[in-house]
Amino acid sequence: MAVQASAAILAVWKKFDEFPMETLTKAWHRGGQRTVAEMKEHRAKYGTSGNCFDLAIWLLDEFRAAGITAYGVGHDLGTSDAHVAVVAEDELGSRYLCDLGDLWLQPILLDPARPEFTGDKLKGFFPAAEVQVAVQGDRCEVCYFRPNGKVSRQEYDLTPISEHDLMVAAEACQHDYRQALVEFRVPHGAETAHWEFCDWESFLSTSEGLYPEEQLATIEAWCERIHLRTGLDKAVLQESLSFYQNSMK
């Protein structure tokens, strides 16, 4: 059976349960990488959260405030394929991958020395998919097994990212406006499903399959749908989506 992270790690992780992962805030803010204080202020006022860099930086701050050893990890920093997550260590020194940018349901063990680490397919860690984790030194590969038989993969370099390198990569990512994206975890029967807005389409991913939603014709209609799903402020959504739409022309 897969082992859960420690109560201390989970207590911090669960603070972000209602956070979407979204690239809309940066198109509204357009001021580069925000501080944690700014992210908290925007969250309280507008219901915003941020992209994978925002969420990782905020999560790191919360872990450190709780006295938990944590650091950034990822791949392809400084490129258009950049992705960042967090590794947190429990009191035994075991590592757990904490990836808010991909909206994992809970942190997952990365310590092959632990007897609970089997390398088997696991349920309950990622919305609408089983996952299989392989760790070799400072390399980690995750395989995602979808209900339709599709298998996708993601690799992480588990070498700790320095704070300087993390902030440089984060700043670069905040000026990349190629894709309007929102992802959100939503209750769906007995499971947690994955709702996504991407490329002016939206759909729900569940263990039973993918459910596309009705196509919308106006920014106002998209604002309403995204607001109802995530709670993001409509004025923020209007400005952000208009910016993305104009940048595509």
Rank of each mutant, 00 (worst) to 15 (best):
H227K: 04
L237M: 00
G209F: 14
L232R: 02
F243M: 02
Q238C: 06
E213T: 06
T230F: 00
P212L: 11
Y211R: 14
H227S: 09
H227D: 05
H227V: 01
G209Y: 14
T218P: 11
A235P: 02
G231M: 00
E224Q: 13
L210D: 12
T230A: 05
S242C: 09
L216P: 10
L237P: 00
I226M: 03
S240T: 07
T230E: 07
A235Q: 12
Q238I: 02
S240L: 05
W222G: 06
A235V: 08
L237N: 00
E213R: 11
I219N: 06
E208D: 15
A235W: 01
L237R: 00
K234W: 01
W222H: 07
I226E: 03
T218K: 11
R225G: 02
C223V: 03
D233S: 11
L232E: 02
I226F: 05
W222N: 06
E220V: 06
R225F: 05
E224I: 06
S240G: 09
P212N: 12
L232K: 03
G231H: 02
L237I: 00
E224P: 03
E224H: 09
E213H: 13
H227C: 04
T230S: 06
Q238F: 05
L241R: 01
F243H: 14
H227A: 06
L216Y: 10
H227F: 04
S242D: 12
G231F: 00
E220Y: 04
L216N: 10
L241M: 12
L210F: 14
H227L: 02
G209W: 13
Q238M: 11
E224G: 04
W222F: 02
C223K: 06
L232S: 03
E224S: 10
L232F: 01
S240A: 15
D233G: 08
A235S: 12
H227Y: 07
E224C: 06
E213N: 11
Q238Y: 06
S242Q: 14
G209P: 14
C223A: 05
D233T: 06
T230W: 00
E213V: 07
